[in-house]
Design a protein around this nucleic acid. Structure first.
Lengths: 165, 165
DNA sequence: CGCCTTGGTTCCTTGAAGGAACCCACCCTA
DNA sequence: TAGGGTGGGTTCCTTCAAGGAACCAAGGCG
């Protein structure tokens, strides 16, 4: 779909989008997480082109997000399962889901809810500070360059950290 | 880029991706958040085609994520600023950024870090339970249908909740 | 006047998405 | 042994979005 790869940008959002932000990919991961682990099941559920699905699954396996695992031999059959890296990505998608619940669900309410096993309650995923545990919002945070930043000479402003070259 | 719209799926991830998951869109929002609010600045920073940028900005304004605001008249000039809805989306992107920091940053480390104003520390955004405040992971949660779910007859399994039709 | 800046729009080419057909190994049943 | 079903794709063709460059218009500005 894209000609421009985002993988080489010095930005963790860009690199995440490059691997997991292609069209359909988040929904494929959602399906796998919810138990649709086989090619035909995912294809039928999403209505995605088989060609596109094959490509996305290959990319996710190469990226270490999914594992292609045989569940029987003779005839050889396999399923796709989330790796640790993939489960961690699903966790991040919970934050996107919560945003969608808040802003796009409308009167019908959220299509899916999450029950937190440890506390037993229906949970709204929140983005919180790892240090103090309080809500981490865009307004309550100040971005600064990290060790992996590539600052370009002759420019200024934080966003210049993420210039493509 | 896509022919298939995800907007009508009964899934908050799909609806979020439909609006904010197009190629370049997360990076545009990142730039606006970091202070690159003008067309030419964003275009130069990302190296994106002007046509694509114009389309993305229009879609984000229509979707209520950005606001197109004049900052001077004569000559008329305007900038793009995040709405409340947009700032909340940036917050969800923090979770994606944290994933990228963990899994794609490599030895160089994260390109950007966030200092939490209220506690003063460098924060790693975590996805936490709104109820008990503890970490919310993919493994520690049980999905169940919400009020907005559309269960299809003749199928089974949670993922069937999100079938396209 | 001619040039610069901002904020786009138009045009053309390339390449990804969508859709349908096809394929192959293996199994089952009659 | 023929025929049909299933899982997991691949091939082919058409359509439409992305990329890139040129163009444009309103308003300064020297």
């Amino acid at each position: 779909m894209q000609r421009t790869s985002l993988a080489d940008m010095p930005c963790s959002i860009a690199r995440t989008v490059d691997l997991a932000g292609e069209w359909w990919t988040p929904l494929i991961l959602r399906d796998v997480y919810l138990g649709l682990t086989r090619f035909d099941d995912i294809q039928a559920n999403l209505g995605i082109s088989r060609k596109v699905l094959a490509g996305r699954l290959e990319r996710l396996v190469d990226g270490g997000v999914l594992e292609r695992r045989p569940y029987q031999e003779r005839p050889p059959r396999h399923e796709y399962v989330l790796t640790t890296k993939g489960l961690d990505l699903v966790r991040a998608f919970f934050a996107l889901m919560a945003w969608g619940d808040r802003w796009t669900a409308g009167d019908a309410g959220p299509p899916m809810r999450l029950r937190h096993d440890s506390c037993g309650e229906l949970a709204t995923p929140e983005v919180a500070c790892s240090h103090c545990g309080k809500p981490l919002t865009a307004e309550s945070v100040t971005p600064e360059p990290g060790p992996g930043a590539r600052v370009r000479k002759g420019t200024s402003g934080l966003a210049q950290l993420f210039a493509r070259t």
